[in-house]
Design a protein around this nucleic acid. Structure first.
Lengths: 146, 146
DNA sequence: TTTAAAAAAGACATTGAAGTCATTTATAAT
DNA sequence: ATTATAAATGACTTCAATGTCTTTTTTAAA
């Protein structure tokens, strides 16, 4: 419920870039890492994956950095999860059994199936844009650790 | 949704002991580990925690092993989770933020809060006994990996 | 074209969960 | 009392996620 750090960093990083983008500038990893209190180089690798999956754009060199593209705001959180930690969680048996299916359901199979599909649905419905309602300074404060 | 191995081993181990207990004998770690295809010594440590929390009984020495006590069957899965991986998951911010509360909610705070409380409720309601409905051989098969 | 800035890439370190192994402790049977 | 058996304990290893540091690549500006 229970995501990896990578996922959390990715969501916050993407969101930060999206929130800053109306100012028509690109955002550097240095700034993102500082504002979000996140390890810079580790975040860099995660952002790299995010860019490879076209969730954000990036350019190297002076005046470079990360920026939104025309798909960024409509990206569902499930996609971010896929990019960062994968979606195996949703198919893997909750008790860790190799073989767990309707033929051989583990003791919590059906109950977990329901809860899982609720989570998956929520992540599939929620987009980056949905996380951006409200006023910008407050939103930024709310993704900064301290 | 997404539990640790320890939790899965604990649930399966307790369940195995409970299913075997009608035969009036104690069950050894050796047998449990073999039947469930779980690392013996690691399971031993987990079972030890389970015993310390009075979820099962154990006796050392010849003819010793693990056995159910009068509370075993009514233990909720949430208790097993508490013993094995703790319940921090339920209070920790889903995005990993230090400060995340109604004053400063992270962007997924409320949605996750709902899903989390659903999971917690399910785990609090479901007891070991609830996992034991059905015929024994099939139940045992369904907690054995392969 | 050179330079400086920024992301990308790769090598390495840290950490906690998971797993292994050897030793100690408790207990039932003789 | 002694012995064999089984859990308990503690030291150590392994592995994947996380984190750090250095080098390489790309690109805009001069």
């Amino acid at each position: 419920m229970f995501f990896t750090k990578s996922f959390g960093y990715a969501v916050r990083g993407i969101l930060y870039v999206a929130l800053m983008s109306d100012e028509k500038r690109k955002v550097q990893i240095e700034e993102i890492a500082e504002r979000l209190s996140v390890p810079k180089h580790f975040l860099g690798k995660i952002m790299n994956k995010v860019v490879k999956q076209k969730i954000l754009d990036s350019t190297k060199g002076p005046y470079g950095g990360f920026s939104v593209n025309n798909s960024t705001l409509s990206v569902p959180l499930l996609k971010v999860m896929e990019v960062t930690e994968g979606l195996e969680q949703f198919s893997m048996c909750a008790l860790g059994l190799k073989k767990c299916d309707p033929e051989h359901p583990c003791p919590v199979h059906y109950k977990m199936e329901g809860l899982r599909s609720d989570l998956r649905k929520a992540l599939a419905e929620d987009t980056i844009n949905d996380l951006m309602i409200g006023n910008k300074p407050e939103l930024i404060r709310n993704i900064s650790a301290t």
